[in-house]
Computed example of a mutant assay.
Amino acid sequence: MTPPPLADEPWRRALDACPLAQRLDHHRQRELRRLSGVFLARKRFHALADAALTDDLCTLIAMQACLPVLKQGPSALRGWRDILVYPGEFKVKRSHHDDRSGVVTEGDDVLIGEAWEHGPLVLSLADVQLDLAQPWDGFNVVIHEIAHKLDMLDGPPDGVPPLPPHIPRRQWIVAFQRAFDLLSNDVARGRDTLIDPYASESPDEFFAVVSELHWSQPGVLRRADAAVAELLQAYYGVSPAEG
Rank of each mutant, 00 (worst) to 15 (best):
A188E: 03
L221G: 14
V92Q: 07
P240S: 06
P74V: 11
D109N: 11
Y236C: 05
S124R: 06
R189P: 13
A179W: 02
V210M: 03
G119D: 02
G79I: 03
L32W: 08
G37Y: 08
A126S: 07
L163G: 11
V38W: 11
A226F: 02
D181A: 11
Q217R: 13
L221R: 11
A227M: 02
S211V: 05
A241Y: 02
F207T: 09
T59H: 05
R100S: 15
F90C: 15
V220H: 07
S200M: 00
Q171S: 13
S124G: 09
V104P: 12
D82K: 06
A175C: 13
C58Y: 00
R178W: 03
S202C: 13
S200V: 06
E212L: 01
D204M: 09
E230D: 15
R178S: 12
L213K: 13
A65P: 11
D50K: 02
E242D: 03
G79A: 07
H148I: 15
D98N: 14
P203W: 06
L53Y: 09
H214V: 13
Y198G: 12
P87K: 04
L163M: 05
I173L: 11
S95H: 09
D98A: 13
S101A: 09
D50R: 03
D154E: 04
L183N: 08
L20E: 00
Q64V: 15
E89S: 14
K71H: 07
D158P: 09
V160K: 00
F176L: 07
F39H: 10
R81Q: 07
R178V: 15
P87H: 08
R189F: 14
V174C: 00
V187Q: 08
A65C: 14
F139C: 04
Q129S: 07
T193R: 04
I173G: 05
L163E: 04
I112W: 01
P87V: 06
T59A: 08
A234D: 10
A47I: 04
A227N: 01
Q72I: 08
P135H: 01
L57H: 04
A21Y: 01
E242A: 09
Q134G: 04
L182C: 03
R223M: 12
